[in-house]
Nucleic acid binder design. Structure first.
Lengths: 236, 236
DNA sequence: CGCCCTTTTGAAGAAAATCAAGGGCAGTGG
DNA sequence: CCACTGCCCTTGATTTTCTTCAAAAGGGCG
């Protein structure tokens, strides 16, 4: 269940062949458990490995000078991070565990060797990166209106859960506090609270106790103008 | 002056060797002039070429369902776009010429052939992409406060101009209307106007007639918490 | 000059932040 | 078992920020 989260992610991005699969299976991934709310990656580091989230949720974030926090993305099982340090970049953000996690480390030289001459695998990394970039653009796009932003945010995470097979009866895990959501959308927790209540009152969602149910997913997606293509629509 | 904008950009990202330079020089780039305000790339296309902006300014944008426009990035001479379609993605945004431009087209297969086995060149593309991604994160980071957002925005474009050698006496071209700036920051043109006036009154900038002068760059950068590292700090 | 586009200004209203306090719930320790 | 603590959610009142609407004032260009 856990190492395979990485493979499953790659399978969603490209069509792996037998050699690709063997290459992935042969990767020496060291696994570390990480506690909820503990930092996984620090800002400004230049680690010599990439990491894969094998279990749990994590968030990318940056602290502002005034101490406030901006979450710029969420990692779900299978998602990876710090791939880019591979080519000499330094982390421009930190990563924190939202829930208890299991994190796999992959040294960069190993990764580089693995994707060399494996066009499939290097394409997978590109596509993952492009999808992240598209997600950032989407966040910018919807950020002009809190109701739309929150609705879109919930659609996005629900869709991502769904693609991992984690939705039952329209219900998915959402282990975020309203403060987390606010930090992701540049809204105060108070305003997130009131916006969620509006979404509830409008009969679109049920949310609480770490779970989200799309009561009327169609209407929610309409309200959010949610089109999931940007989440990596290369394979069905 | 014009094809070389592309090479200069790559030189800023990696250390090119003689073979790299020859490879770049040999690229069959077809150049098209484009008029101000004309669209360069349409949304949802899957073009078989990437393009390089050789002269002028352009902007990436997406239209919302209500007709409003979100600019998600600016292209300056040397910047390229649509590289990613290379690996099967479709454009999730459009590109419009801000000024009259000269645009170079490079077929994807040519590009793929060129970067294959040229680790330097493929790294350059990665770094360019990572820098764009970091820029998007930065825009999200500063978006919580209009004064900070506008200040940061001006710092960023001024810095990018400077790296292209386009700054004289702290003065750079800024061929944007206040509506453009608003579309980039999710602010109304009216509010951009008032915010610019505050920045003027605070003695930080002089702006107008398509030009921007940083009267007190240090103070402006402090106000914006501007740290230019994210713009691709690989080479000085 | 007259036109179009952009900038500027004013007044009013909506959206979101801030400040403050109360309530629920889970975990902890007596 | 109950009190206590800490975290999160909720609510209300108030202030600030930003938008909206409207109109006037430049500025470049045929």
């Amino acid at each position: 269940m856990s190492i395979s989260a990485f493979q499953r992610k790659l399978e969603m991005l490209v069509s792996l062949d037998a050699v690709d699969r063997r290459t992935i299976a042969a990767l020496p991934i060291t696994v570390y458990p990480t506690e909820k709310r503990r930092e996984i990656f620090d800002n400004g580091q230049r680690p010599n490995f990439a990491f894969v989230l094998l279990e749990g949720w994590a968030a990318r974030f940056t602290l502002r000078t005034d101490g406030s926090r901006r979450i710029t993305g969420f990692l779900l099982p299978g998602d990876f991070c710090g791939i880019h340090a591979r080519c000499g970049a330094e982390m421009d953000h930190a990563v924190v565990a939202i829930t208890d996690c299991r994190v796999g480390h992959i040294p960069h030289d190993v990764l580089n060797a693995a994707i060399k001459d494996r066009r499939n695998l290097s394409d997978a990394l590109w596509r993952a990166k492009l999808s992240e970039e598209a997600t950032l653009r989407k966040w910018l796009l919807v950020s002009h209106d809190a109701y739309v932003a929150v609705a879109h945010f919930l659609c996005e995470l629900h869709e991502r859960s769904e693609r991992l097979g984690l939705v039952r009866d329209g219900r998915s895990k959402l282990p975020l506090t309203q403060t987390d959501i606010g930090d992701a959308l540049s809204l105060t927790a108070v305003h997130v609270n009131r916006t969620l209540q509006r979404l509830r009152r409008d009969g679109l969602i049920v949310i609480g106790k770490g779970e989200l149910t799309l009561v009327d997913g169609t209407a929610l997606k309409r309200a959010a103008a949610f089109k999931p293509d940007y989440l990596g629509s290369w394979r069905q």
